[in-house]
Design a protein around this nucleic acid. Structure first.
Lengths: 207, 207
DNA sequence: GTCTATAACTCGATAGAC
DNA sequence: GTCTATCGAGTTATAGAC
């Protein structure tokens, strides 16, 4: 199992704090998180948190930065690759849903925190190497011009794909209630999403 | 303009408090909201908040209950109607995106708060008259059997439609950054979603 | 009903012993 | 490095005058 890159050994105090903070912050957000809860989960006391990370703010930033910079590169690589469009869409969906399944709290964390502090994210937490969708857009337009897919604005296509991948995880509790599913049924249902989203998107693109 | 149903006249103190609380709670959530800010926005002082709603918790519950019970009936009506499937999908998307456009903070509020306090929602805030998707499911299966639409699990169809409607609004700031849009461009882009989602879904359903 | 003043409490942060 | 104890700022909640 991989360690957090620029962190200490997995069971150092600093790492235990970081892991505990990661868990609590991503589930409860900045405001909802208490330093006491992080300390409890790390099996130490509050004073130590401040010894390693001077303030709650700094600990939060450390977590947020790690979360964001971990989420982006995989996506970027696919978006900017020169795979043919259909294969690119397949891999994007496969990879994206895979990441979210393994980190189900991350999307809502990012969305909530961007909404609450847009400046902080844009100014200091946003990585500089965002995916550049320009090439992907040209690719879509070429396929449309060649009559191989139905006309659609590339921006809408990308937003549609992301929506179909992310939202069912973000809105899981809502969906469960609406569809009347048990926790187990919901898990199975979400596992089907890779195939479902791929089929749905490719079907929508047929000329 | 309609008044909140079971509330006092629109400019009574109690109503002013409720409206202010509605605005702040839906944008900042339970934890992010300060009673002082609600008091300021209502043009009164903190003590009065406690006079009308004994605790912050009770005020929050009052708002949350109103938000949820307002969001559901319009949807329910369409889902359970006996319109033909295509028309039902058209109206659902039209209505749903319309509601969200006019109340852009509501979806994220509901999603965040369900995730933070699932028990509270399910136990005490969920209305009893949830939309019953059973009839809609049968309708989808009939269309598939008749060969009029491509085979798809009805549960996935409904989740797909909701995802396409809701997520772009919830993830607006993220989408703006990714697509490099100005606030104005984003507004126009979201206005196109009614048509885009309708076309996309109906295209995906072609046999 | 509405206000001012303040009590009671929560929580991030620090001091200081070991 | 780690702990206990405590401070101090900020918030919810109440007491009491008008």
């Amino acid at each position: 199992m991989a360690k957090k890159e620029n962190q200490q050994a997995a069971d150092s105090t600093e790492q235990k704090i970081f892991d505990a903070a990661h868990e609590v912050f991503t589930q409860k957000g900045m405001d909802g998180t208490k330093m006491q809860e992080i300390a409890d989960r790390a099996g130490i006391n509050k004073a130590l948190l401040h010894y390693y990370y001077r303030t709650k703010e700094k600990l939060y930033e450390s977590v947020a930065r790690a979360v964001i910079s971990k989420a982006i590169p995989a996506i970027r690589q696919i978006i900017e690759s020169d795979l043919p469009l259909e294969e690119k869409i397949r891999r994007f969906i496969e990879t994206y849903i895979g990441i979210i399944s393994r980190n189900p709290f991350i999307p809502l964390f990012i969305i909530s925190e961007i909404n609450k502090h847009p400046e902080r994210f844009i100014d200091s937490l946003m990585p500089k190497d965002l995916p550049k969708p320009a090439f992907f857009f040209r690719q879509v337009e070429d396929e449309i011009a060649a009559g191989r897919i139905r006309p659609i604005k590339p921006q809408h296509l990308i937003v549609n794909v992301i929506s179909l991948c992310v939202f069912p995880f973000v809105g899981k509790p809502m969906m469960r209630i609406l569809l009347g599913m048990s926790a187990g049924e919901m898990r199975l249902f979400l596992e089907e999403r890779k195939d479902e989203v791929t089929n749905f998107v490719l079907a929508a693109l047929r000329p």
